[in-house]
Design a protein around this nucleic acid. Sequence first.
DNA 1: CCCTGATTCGC
DNA 2: GCGAATCAGG
Length: 126
Amino acid sequence: MEEEKASMSWTDERIERLRQLWGQGMSASEIAEVLGNVTRNAVIGKAHRLGLSGRPSPIKKKPTRGATILSLNERMCKWPVGDPKHADFHFCGCPSLPGMPYCREHAQMAYQPAKKRDDERKLVMA
DNA sequence: CCCTGATTCGC
DNA sequence: GCGAATCAGG
């Protein structure tokens, strides 16, 4: 059994896990969760220091609009952008999540209104 | 409102 | 080198 030390440092094993999970497309928060005792900030910070990052959202920037229905793949985000009757209509084309026809941002958009199911207690929100 | 990563800045 | 805080965007 691996014990958690009070002083957690980035060992080769954890860095290895970080690289793998990050390369697999896991978000910083997910990696932080699976690693344990680390926040998403720590994961991002270490990832950046390692020379990683850049894989997921480099703050969203897709000047490429070659993504048409003919070039759509299963792993491409199928989110319609613009007017379907316009010539500049295109799809997001961002890497979609497993089992999800949309990428993170668009999946969140689609899931936002389709959530909430609390029996009691529901404050917060101002 | 939620989320994401990028960067900065103090330790 | 480390990570929280902050920043920037969807």
